[in-house]
Design a protein around this nucleic acid. Structure first.
Lengths: 117, 117
DNA sequence: CTATTGCATTGACAACCATCGTTTCAATAG
DNA sequence: CTATTGAAACGATGGTTGTCAATGCAATAG
């Protein structure tokens, strides 16, 4: 994430003049921003953030039935949240018999994490 | 962010038994999750994320009129986005003369950044 | 001082998307 | 067969995102 904009001088000007010239914004930036915003948006719910937290701790895999009692929401709602995290590319699941085991995809949070720090 | 849950064993069980016992979830965790999710939510839009990026780069202050030409949205819409970032405690503004200068509040992203990495 | 110009915020509104529960269903195990 | 897990479908509610119009302020012009 590097922008390098040519910002107009922030000095006082007489009224009647334009404030600043338009600046082109690189498209690459826009794509990166779109990706990172999608991840951030998926994390923008306390339940989903806690879900990711639990899944990251238990690096292996956690079955959905173990997640349900942690939150005061119904099982279908939890399933819905997991589906959103999966759609955002943050987690994935693996079905073994009756149970579905979720895990955080390695590196899924790297881009955002790197940009933030 | 430390959860320390007592997860039930992920072994196969005969049908007819409950999958796992309910587990208490620490309230402290919940508050942290709520705070970080609020920040993530504010960053969950490409425009807002790029706004934060630009403001972080120009650590000083950038006037709104310089931000407008960077995005293909109207000025009021940009103002709304800035308002959301301010409501989330990520940025603040300072008015000098005609212009409003925005800056990222130091440390505003630290908690989320630390949890992510 | 008053009028005018320009920057930024705020409000109202339409269109869209998210959240959540209830119900339903496919798949699996006994 | 029955019981269980987890996901999909539906609808009700509420929140986002965007525009335009109106307002609040600062600074210059007369």
């Amino acid at each position: 994430m590097s922008v390098d904009l040519q910002l107009a001088p922030k000095t006082k000007r007489p009224a009647g003049e334009r404030c600043c010239d338009p600046v082109v914004y690189p498209d690459v930036e826009r794509e990166q921003a779109r990706r990172m915003a999608a991840v951030a948006k998926a994390l923008g719910d306390p339940i989903r953030l806690q879900l990711v937290d639990v899944l990251r701790k238990h690096a292996g895999k956690v079955c959905v039935c173990e997640l349900v009692p942690l939150f005061e929401i119904s099982q279908p709602t939890l399933s819905h949240h997991l589906g959103k995290l999966r759609a955002a590319g943050i987690v994935d699941s693996e079905r073994r018999g009756l149970w579905a085991y979720y895990y955080v995809i390695p590196g899924a949070l790297e881009e955002l994490s790197g940009w933030l720090s």
